[in-house]
Amino acid sequence: MIRARALSKRYPQGIDAIKEVSFDIGTGEMVFITGRSGAGKTTLFRLLAAIERPTTGSIIVNGQNLAALRKSAIPFLRRSFGLVFQDQKLLFDRNAIDNVLLPMKIVGLPANEALRRARAALDKVGLLNREKANLLTLSGGEQQRLAIARAVVNRPSILLADEPTTNLDADSAAGILEIFRAFHQVGVTLIVATHDPQWVSRLSPRILRLDHGRILGSDG
């Protein structure tokens, strides 16, 4: 489903963020990408979502080589992912459910169907009672769960999350991991980048360890 070969990314300023990385991720796998801050996790996330283009090498998602993807095909590739960004990228001038409605507006889902799905997604992350909430009144953990609800509302086959538990207290982090476990159990492919993996072990995921842009090891 995802295949990277000799994948490298050099930013215009000359920093080699990803160096000659190769890996495969199969359908339904749960993979955590770990490594210190600056190891290249976010860069890998952005390469997968076609936000950045590889400098060299190839990365193939669902049979499409992202290195050679036409610009006009990128939006449609992104729709096959649920994306949870490191900085969440929520709209603070909208209430909770309007944030979750955005991806369905993009694909043109009829309003009643969209509303039904948005409520279902909010329910899955435990925010159904906060659907009209102003985002500023949501806690860090609630905002993160809202970001996850928006990512999964179009039922993507791959969920990509960048540092979803960073800055959360232990309880909130555990709640997020439970949500991930539930998606994994229904067959969603999960790819999570985190610099803080020690409490992740109870999910027993496969781990890709990044260091200075290279894969140190893969286990699990």
Partner: peptide, 8 residues
């Protein structure tokens, strides 16, 4: 944000 999550 819309672009990042698949808007044309």
């Amino acid at each position: 944000i819309a672009r990042l999550i698949g808007a044309t």
